[in-house]
């Protein structure tokens, strides 16, 4: 049979006993979520060790750091988006839409206007709070608070989310769980008034596991974690052009890759988290990311 056309070296830099997620490069180390343990861990490249950075994260999953050093967290278990600044109490950004608590905020993307786009799927098996799993946007208000607006109506179970660097496109992993559900990578135009255009399907994962998390590389391509050993070609890092062309695929040594992010001094180290609890670093991907805008 053909040789795997792969070449990346995966280094295990941390390993937890269950799912890791939400990688964020803080400038000198890697923050990541250990969701079931309600922990944010921090891996220090100087020591090569991970330590508990924050506790009681409420099932903290996807995270994003803004340029002012504020950490925004999807607290799935607590059904809310929060802001955390070290040494200060956790602040709720949004916890409901039209008075109804969210399902399980999963992942988020910040735009240049300070708006927080996030996905609200229901993977955890609790009864649905809002009976539709969609993308929301939390918009900052003059009084310092945020309001939540529902941005999509046609997704099935959104997961990873990205905003294009020129702010005109939203990319969402629509990744329902189950048999033969055709997870997809989809995109919408973001209009000047903030509304979205029609959904365009960029990639269909057929009977396999779709995208969990994704990030941008410096060339403006989407680096995505997807796949599992259960069905299809296996766990994989995909590199997609924004028109849906698959530029590269790289099988991962651990199953169920959940998210990925570029970090390191030159933003050329790819960090990958997994459903199996590992955190990998790839230093020879040939790809490069860019710092938070």
């Amino acid at each position: 049979m053909p040789r795997p056309v792969d070449d990346w070296t995966y280094e295990t830099i941390a390993e937890r006993d269950s799912l890791t997620e939400g990688p964020v490069w803080d400038g000198s180390g890697l923050l990541y979520s250990h969701c079931a343990a309600d922990l944010t861990m921090r891996w220090d490249p100087e020591t090569g060790e991970s330590s508990v950075w924050r506790e009681d994260t409420g099932g903290g999953n996807g995270m994003a750091l803004d340029r002012d050093g504020r950490l925004f967290v999807c607290e799935g278990k607590n059904r809310r988006i929060t802001e955390y600044v070290a040494g200060e109490p956790t602040r709720t950004i949004v916890d409901n839409w039209q008075g109804v608590p969210f399902n399980e905020p999963n992942d988020l993307a910040l735009d240049l206007r300070g708006r927080i786009w996030f996905t609200d799927p229901n993977y955890g098996g609790r009864p649905l709070s809002i009976p539709s799993e969609q993308v929301y946007r939390a918009d900052p208000q003059p009084d310092g608070g945020y309001t939540a607006a529902r941005m999509t109506e046609d997704l099935r179970r959104p997961n990873g989310i990205l905003i294009s660097s020129n702010q005109d496109r939203l990319f969402v992993a629509d990744s329902p769980s189950g048999e033969k559900v055709h997870p997809r990578l989809v995109t919408y135009a973001i209009h000047d008034d903030g509304s979205l255009g029609e959904q365009i399907v960029l990639h269909d994962f057929g009977w396999g596991r779709g995208i969990d998390g994704m990030c941008w590389d410096a060339d403006g391509n989407i680096v995505a974690t997807a796949g599992s050993h259960r069905y299809g070609p296996g766990p994989m890092i995909y590199v997609f052009a924004t028109n849906g062309r698959v530029l590269e695929t790289h099988p991962t040594p651990s199953d169920m890759p959940t998210n990925c992010l570029f970090g390191g001094p030159g933003y050329d180290e790819l960090f990958i988290t997994y459903g199996t609890g590992q955190v990998h670093r790839v230093r020879d991907s040939g790809l490069r990311g860019r710092p938070t805008p």
Partner: peptide
């Protein structure tokens, strides 16, 4: 009409896309 355009797509037997060539 849609998608990434005319392409030679190279698959492994398990369905993995290993290369695309417009």
């Amino acid at each position: 009409v849609s998608g990434p355009g005319g392409m030679i797509t190279v698959f492994e037997p398990n369905g993995r896309i290993v290369a695309t060539h417009p």
